[in-house]
Amino acid sequence: MTDLDRAREFYGNVLGFGRPVYDLPDAGWIEFSSGGAGGNVAVVLAESGWVPSTGTTLVLDVEDCRAAVDELRRRGVDCEDAQVFPGFVTYASFYDPFGNRLQMCSPA
């Protein structure tokens, strides 16, 4: 399985983005619809391979962050415990197969 196959599986099936809108393996690019949030999510293979991002975090809205952590863990995803900023947000970080940090959040 190539890194693009792993990315396609993780983002498309594990996270539920579905089939890619653009699937360009020769360019090292897979792009998924964000589900009507006004943009897409692109996964790009760098020339040196998959390099975890350090300056940008994709944050996904979910109904119940704690339940989403439990579900992703059942699917084998590395998830941190949910944290609460009282009166604002509940959030949790999780990681794709390449070490990129993503987050999810729900109301506090």
Rank of each mutant, 00 (worst) to 15 (best):
S106I: 03
F98Q: 00
N13L: 07
A7T: 12
S48L: 12
G12K: 09
G36P: 03
I30S: 04
G99E: 13
G12N: 10
G99M: 09
D78V: 08
L102F: 00
D23H: 05
V21F: 04
S93A: 13
P97D: 15
L60S: 13
V43A: 02
F17K: 10
D64M: 07
D23G: 11
G35F: 00
V14N: 13
F17D: 07
R8Y: 09
L60K: 11
C65N: 02
V21H: 08
Y95K: 12
V41P: 02
T54S: 05
W29F: 00
F17E: 04
L15A: 12
G49R: 08
G16Q: 07
P25D: 03
R19H: 05
R66G: 11
V51T: 10
V69S: 03
M1D: 10
P97Q: 09
R74E: 14
D61R: 15
Q83C: 11
S34I: 00
L4V: 08
W29G: 00
D64C: 08
D96V: 03
A82Q: 01
G99I: 09
Y95W: 12
T57H: 11
F10Y: 05
Q83N: 13
A82G: 07
G55T: 13
S93G: 10
G38F: 10
D96R: 05
Y91N: 15
T56P: 02
V44F: 07
T56I: 06
A27S: 01
A46G: 07
Y22T: 11
M104Q: 02
V21C: 15
V69G: 08
D23K: 12
E71G: 06
G35E: 01
F17T: 10
A42V: 02
F98W: 06
F32D: 00
D26S: 05
V14D: 14
E71I: 00
Y91A: 15
V21Q: 11
D96H: 01
E47V: 15
E80T: 02
V14C: 12
R66C: 02
V41G: 01
P107D: 09
A46C: 13
I30T: 04
E47S: 15
N40I: 11
V77H: 01
E80L: 13
E71L: 11
L58T: 12
G49W: 10
A82R: 14
S53W: 05
I30P: 00
G39S: 15
